[in-house]
Amino acid sequence: MGTSNNYDVEDRGEPADNTAPVYSSAFLFKGTGEIRIEHAGFCYRLKITRQGKLILNK
Results as ranks from 00 to 15, higher is better:
Glu38Gln: 11
Gly33Asp: 10
Thr49Glu: 14
Tyr7Arg: 11
Ile55Lys: 15
Ser25Ala: 14
Ala20Glu: 14
Leu28Ala: 04
Val22Phe: 09
Asp8Leu: 00
Thr32Asp: 01
Ser4Ile: 01
Thr19Asn: 09
Ala20Tyr: 13
Ile35Asp: 01
Phe42Ile: 10
Lys30Ile: 04
Pro15Asp: 10
Phe42Arg: 15
Ala40Asp: 13
Tyr23Gln: 02
Glu10Leu: 11
Asn57Val: 09
Tyr7Ala: 05
Met1Thr: 15
Arg12Met: 13
Ser25Asp: 14
Asn6His: 08
Leu46Gly: 06
Phe29Lys: 05
Leu54Ser: 06
Cys43Arg: 06
Ile37Leu: 06
Phe29Tyr: 03
Asn6Val: 07
Gln51Ala: 14
Pro21Arg: 08
Lys30Pro: 03
Thr19Ile: 08
Ser24Phe: 07
Thr32Asn: 09
Ser24Ile: 07
Lys30Cys: 05
Asn57Ile: 09
Leu28Cys: 02
Thr49Ala: 11
Lys53Cys: 04
Lys58Ala: 09
Gly2Glu: 01
Lys53Tyr: 11
Gly33Lys: 14
Val9Cys: 04
Arg12Leu: 13
Tyr23His: 07
Ala16Leu: 08
Ala16Asp: 13
Thr49Trp: 15
Gly52Ile: 08
Gln51Cys: 08
Ala16Ser: 14
Asn18Tyr: 09
Phe27Val: 10
Phe27Asn: 02
Arg45Val: 10
Asn5Asp: 03
Arg36Val: 10
Val22His: 06
Gly41Tyr: 03
Arg45Tyr: 11
Thr3Lys: 12
Ile37Ser: 00
Ala20His: 09
Cys43Val: 14
Ala26Glu: 15
Ala20Cys: 09
Ala40Gln: 11
Asn18Lys: 06
Phe27Glu: 07
Tyr7Lys: 07
Lys30Gly: 00
Ala26Thr: 15
Ser25Thr: 15
Thr32Met: 03
Lys30Trp: 05
Thr19Tyr: 03
Thr49Phe: 12
Ile48His: 06
Gly13Trp: 05
Gln51Thr: 06
Leu56Arg: 10
Ser25Gly: 01
